[in-house]
């Protein structure tokens, strides 16, 4: 086999490499963005915002620390939020999961009405009417659900509705965070 013949195989090899990447690409989701906070295990950005349920109280990141918890970004204008709301209620009630909420770019009146009508799974709800906290967290589409560790650092983010399948992943992450803290 002379050089010339070997050269003739270069295009085929290049194509095969390309093909492998394309095949891999079929199972990747280009729309899914990793969270910068979760990647770097950063704490929540600083904020001082009123609580949705008790407007006189100001909440800060410290209020959301203390135990491993979920932080759910939601709004009444978001149809998927409504979809997952029942599941969040079940998690809070049956599984005893601590869930905090961020009410994102919403009207407080409507949001309080929503919690009255569909029940409130959240221990505390931060009222982020202007979306400034959402912006600082890199929220790009409600609903988003974050896993916070006991120190209040962000460990994981899921974009989209939480359902039984997603909950399995979230549960794993929370478990891992807990064991890490012990060890």
């Amino acid at each position: 086999m002379n050089n010339r013949k070997l050269f003739a195989f270069i295009p085929l090899v290049l194509f095969l490499v390309l093909g492998i990447f394309l095949w891999r690409g079929l199972s990747l989701d280009p729309t899914e963005l990793p969270s910068e906070l979760a990647e770097k295990k950063k704490p929540l950005p600083a904020f001082e915002l009123p609580s949705l349920t008790e407007p006189e109280t100001l909440l800060t990141p410290a209020d959301l620390a203390g135990e491993v918890a979920l932080l759910n970004v939601w709004a009444t204008w978001c149809p998927t939020c409504k979809e997952e709301h029942g599941f969040l209620n079940r998690l809070a009630r049956d599984e005893g999961v601590t869930i905090y909420g961020i009410n994102y770019k919403d009207e407080p009146g409507k949001a309080r009405e929503w919690l009255r009508r569909y029940l409130n799974p959240y221990q505390k709800v931060v009222l982020d009417q202007e979306g400034t906290l959402g912006l600082d967290m890199g929220v790009y589409g409600a609903p988003e659900t974050y896993v916070l560790d006991a120190e209040g650092r962000v460990r994981y983010r899921h974009v989209g509705a939480v359902d039984a399948q997603v909950w399995e992943t979230l549960q794993q992450v929370m478990q891992q965070v807990r064991t890490e803290a012990k060890g």
């Binding site: 963005l33 910068e36 600082d136 790009y140």
Partner: peptide, 8 residues
């Protein structure tokens, strides 16, 4: 922008 949304 990058600290919030990444290199993306």
């Amino acid at each position: 922008m990058v600290t919030r949304y990444g290199e993306f």
